[in-house]
Amino acid sequence: MASKGDLTKARLAASMLELIQTSGYSGTGLNAVTEHAAAPKGSIYFHFPDGKEGLGVAAVDLAATQFETLILEAAASAGSAAEAARAAIEALTTIVGDSDFRLGCPVSVVTLEMGAESERLRQACASAFESWIAPTAALLEANGVDAAGARSLATVVVSTIEGAVIVSRAMRSTAPLVSAADVVADLIDQRCQTVGGTR
C-alpha cells in the first residue's frame, strides 16, 4: 500500500501534468500545483528537491506511462495493427474534444517550451516519445513488418498523432485527428498487406 508521502508525490505529479496541458510549462507556477493537488506548500521541495524541473520530469514520465498504457490496451483489444492505431487515436480524440480542446499532449508542450532550455526535460520528452514508438513498432513487427520498416513507420505514426493533436486544438475541431486516424490506419494496412501481414 502506498504511503501518505507517496500519494502526495503522485498527486503533485498528476496536478503538474494537468496544469501543463492547460497553462503550459512556463505558465504553471509551483503555488498553483500545490493548490491544485491540495498539498502542503513545502511538499514540492520535499518530494522534488530540484523543484519545478524535477516535477516537470515526473509529469512527463506520467504522461508517457498513460499514453503507453493506452497504446498497449488498444493493441490488446484490436484485431490488427491498423485497428489498434485507430482505437488509440479515437481515444485521444475523445480526450481532446471532451476537454473543450484544453487538453492535448503535455510532452509536446514541454518539448516546444523547454527542449532548448533544459537538457533534462528534453531527455524526458525524448524518452516519452520513445516509449510510444517502441510498442507501436513491436505491434507492426507482429503484423509482419520488418524491424527497420516497423521502427520507421511507428515514428511516422506517433509524429502524425502529435501533429494532429496540436492542429485540432488550434482549430478547435477534432477533424484533424479524425483524418489522422483514417490516414494512419490506411498506411498501416497498406504496409502490412505489402509484406503479407494480416489486416
Rank of each mutant, 00 (worst) to 15 (best):
A37T: 04
G5F: 06
L187W: 03
G97V: 07
G149K: 00
G5T: 09
L121K: 01
L177H: 05
G5R: 06
E90D: 15
M16H: 04
D6G: 11
E130C: 07
L19V: 05
E53N: 09
L62G: 05
A116Y: 11
A32E: 15
A180H: 02
G24R: 05
R191P: 01
T174W: 03
D189Q: 09
R199H: 11
A38E: 15
L55Q: 05
D98V: 09
R169E: 03
R120W: 06
Q193K: 13
K4W: 12
Q123A: 10
G56Q: 06
S108E: 10
F101M: 08
R172I: 07
F101W: 11
T22F: 10
D186K: 14
A116L: 12
V183M: 14
Q193R: 15
N143D: 12
L103I: 15
A85T: 03
S23F: 12
V110L: 04
A181H: 02
A150I: 04
H36F: 13
V178I: 14
R199V: 07
C192S: 13
E18A: 10
E90F: 03
A37P: 03
A126I: 10
C192W: 01
S77Y: 02
K41E: 12
V158W: 01
S168T: 06
S131C: 10
C192G: 05
E73W: 08
V156F: 09
V60L: 08
G42N: 13
S43E: 10
A63C: 09
A134R: 14
D98Y: 06
Q66I: 07
S179Y: 11
F67T: 05
G42Y: 11
A134T: 14
K9W: 02
S127I: 08
L177S: 05
V107N: 03
N143H: 12
G79E: 02
R120F: 07
G196R: 01
A32G: 15
V60P: 00
E113D: 09
A116F: 10
D189E: 14
K9E: 05
A58C: 07
T28G: 02
P176L: 03
A185C: 03
E53T: 11
V158C: 07
M16C: 07
I166K: 13
V165I: 15
K4E: 14
R122H: 10
A39L: 10
T136R: 00
E130Y: 10
A84Y: 00
V178Y: 10
H36N: 13
N31L: 13
R86Q: 14
A154K: 01
D98G: 07
V184W: 00
E130S: 13
A148C: 01
C192F: 04
Q190M: 14
